[in-house]
Design a protein around this nucleic acid. Structure first.
Length: 152
DNA sequence: GCCAACGTTGGC
DNA sequence: GCCAACGTTGGC
């Protein structure tokens, strides 16, 4: 899962209550589908800082809820308000995520590009801007190796 | 800050 | 249902 640290960083996640947040504001159907259809409580998630220095995987999270409707879509005061969405038929789903680890130092985009076994990661494919992307178990393990950590 | 690559919208 | 126009993303 990507986030611009100016908007929401891994430090913000750690500081949140229970180090857990609603991953709200996702307004892309493909990204929504990943949360709605592919994520289960306990799944591991890489936290990536986009539009940042350095561009890097800065840590990990756990999926901490079942998918449920993003409450911000119903809030007229939210910048994520969607007038076309109804409570009966919500458009946007999200999951909660909980902090699990910080990578220090982070695993940079440059490292990922250079590492054998990670060449197929969607993250480094040209033109790929999806903010939620699938990661294979092998990729998860290699990224943890680069971080000097045991994969969970 | 630029701009290429994407995704969405809406007129036809 | 096509596709031009528009808005957004995110690496550089």
């Amino acid at each position: 899962m990507k986030s611009e640290p100016d908007e929401f960083s891994i430090d913000d996640l750690i500081k949140a209550e229970n180090s857990t947040v609603h991953w709200d504001g996702i307004r892309n159907y493909q990204a929504r589908n990943f949360m709605r259809d592919e994520m289960q409580p306990g799944d591991g998630v890489l936290f990536y800082h986009s539009r940042a220095k350095p561009l890097a995987v800065v840590g990990t999270m756990n999926v901490a809820s079942e998918p449920y409707p993003d409450p911000t879509q119903f809030d007229p005061d939210s910048k994520y308000f969607d007038p076309k969405s109804t409570k009966e038929n919500p458009r946007w789903m999200l999951v909660d995520v909980q902090f699990t680890a910080r990578f220090d130092p982070p695993v940079t985009r440059e490292q990922i590009k250079e590492t054998a076994g990670l060449e197929d990661m969607m993250l480094i494919k040209k033109g790929s801007r999806l903010s939620i992307q699938p990661v294979t178990e092998q990729e998860w393990n290699i990224v943890h190796e680069l971080a000097g950590r045991d994969p969970i």
